[in-house]
Computed example of a mutant assay.
Amino acid sequence: MKQVGVLVLSVLVLLLLQATILPQLLSAAVKPDLLLIFTVSCGLLCGREKAVGIGFFSGLLQDLASGNIFGIHTLSKMAIGYLAGLAEQKVFKEHIFLPMAAMLVASLLNSALMLALMTFLGYRIGWSAAMSGEILPSLLYNVLFSVPVHQTVYRLAKRWD
């Protein structure tokens, strides 16, 4: 039960950082998705069940906080958490390049999934403008922030074993 409390508290702290402090420190349009990074790290270290749960909870909170299309973050983070969790048994968890490579792939998949969902819902999206203007810079931030977040989740996961 303590583990669930720590995960919930972590998601809430990351949401607050992402919504309040990071926009002040970084460009307003482009910022890292700390909740995505946390979901992917939990998937790689704890498995798909926890990652799907964390993806659902963090995506739901992000949907509520952002005011965008409701459910789009929830669906995308659950899917990305599931995919990251599939790799749990197949990766060397201590390797420093693991979170960076995983975030590169996860950020691209997350962005493509969100754009596809928005297109499916009838929104006109300029895919090339979205890629160059927001997605690629955000991807770089996600890769940079992935290492400290992953290391923190790794330390927490070792305590739970």
Score class of each variant (00 low, 15 high):
Gln3Gly: 06
Val4Tyr: 07
Gly5Pro: 00
Gly5Thr: 02
Val11Ile: 13
Leu14Asn: 03
Ala19Thr: 03
Leu22Pro: 00
Leu22Trp: 13
Pro23Cys: 02
Pro23Tyr: 13
Leu25His: 06
Leu26Trp: 12
Ser27His: 14
Ala28Lys: 12
Pro32Ser: 02
Leu34Ser: 12
Leu34Asp: 09
Ile37Trp: 10
Thr39Asn: 06
Thr39Met: 04
Cys42Thr: 08
Cys42Leu: 14
Cys46Gln: 08
Lys50Glu: 12
Ala51Val: 02
Gly53Arg: 04
Ile54Trp: 09
Gln62Trp: 14
Leu64Met: 13
Ala65Cys: 13
Ala65Thr: 08
Gly67His: 11
Phe70His: 11
Phe70Tyr: 11
Gly71Tyr: 08
His73Val: 02
Leu75Gly: 04
Lys77Pro: 02
Ala79Glu: 02
Ile80Met: 01
Gly81Leu: 04
Glu88Ser: 00
Gln89Asp: 04
Gln89Met: 06
Lys90Ser: 04
Val91Ser: 06
His95Glu: 08
Ser107Phe: 09
Leu108Thr: 00
Leu108Val: 02
Asn110Thr: 05
Met114Pro: 01
Ala116Met: 15
Leu117Asn: 07
Leu121Gly: 00
Gly122Ile: 08
Arg124Thr: 11
Arg124Ser: 09
Ala129Cys: 10
Ala129Pro: 05
Leu136Ala: 09
Pro137Ser: 12
Pro137Leu: 05
Leu139Phe: 06
Leu139Thr: 07
Val147Gly: 12
Val147Asn: 13
Val149Asp: 06
Val149Lys: 01
Val149Leu: 05
Thr152Ile: 15
Thr152Asp: 10
Val153Gln: 01
Leu156Pro: 05
Trp160Arg: 07
Trp160Tyr: 09
Asp161Tyr: 15
